[in-house]
Amino acid sequence: MKPAKFDYYAPSSLDEALDKLAELGYDGKVLAGGQSLVAAMNFRMARPTALVDLNNVPELSYIKPTEDGGLAIGTMTRVFTVENNAEVAKRFPLLVEVAKYIAHPQIRRRGTFGGAIAHADPAGQLPSIAVLMNMKALIRRKGEERWVDGQDLIIGPFMTVIEPDEMLAELVLNAWPARTGYKYVQVSRQSGGYAQSAVASIVTLDENDKCKDVRMVLMSVGEVPILSQKAGEILIGNTPTREVIAEVAEVVTSEEIDPATDLHATADYRRSITRVLAVRSLTEAFERAK
């Protein structure tokens, strides 16, 4: 288990990195934290021709407040940094809650926020959260930049709209309105292991304790994170009673997800726990919104 050869570039600025990616085109691959990529390279499942290492580009690592009360997170910010950032904890405590589930501490120290999202692992927590929060993704290419909504970023398992000569540069998290609650729950066989199913919700209540807005994402039960449409249809404008939440869970798990049977869980089991997790996630999120 030793990686195959590759060409290696370690630009020290963003411009230099973009130049290199443009030059390499299809052959180039960004090396961020490398916590998934290098493992795949060691197995020789991944054999990139050339790596553009972003670890020497300090300008890609930051957590900055935005004007409207949100945060902008540079792609190379380590997950551990995000997890332990006071501003993140204050504005988006969901991220702190989620981070504990991402692999193990040593992986989070090195793994990056943007790298995990761009990896788009169907069992990855951060890609799902990017969809859930509809983070605005800044995608850069030499001389160009574009913004993509988080919910449009992922197009397949391990696949995003980011082209080989592009990179995910920044993620902007919009501030949550008042009376917003959240909850991430997952079932995995062991701590730090891949989720068999996970559900995260962000809900907002109006002044009458009726559901004003709800976003719910289901993870590891399809090829990509699934952003529930039904949750909104059923909940918005209604009081989130136990019965309504149970109905959402029922509808979502029977109509919106497509879990697979694998070595660790059957599709049926996944469906059954997703229903449970949906209830737990929504119930706690509404509780927190109060």
Binding site: G34, Q35, V38, A39, N42, N55, Q106, I107, R109, R110
Partner: peptide, 29 residues
């Protein structure tokens, strides 16, 4: 294991514990 799970290769890199099997030597420059 050389795939980042067993933790036997953990070292302290700039003060932080990381897996030395998931990083290239050239990156330690």
């Amino acid at each position: 294991c050389e795939h980042g799970i067993c933790g036997a290769c953990t070292i302290i890199f700039d003060g932080e514990p990381i897996r030395s099997c998931l990083i290239f030597a050239v990156q330690a420059n």
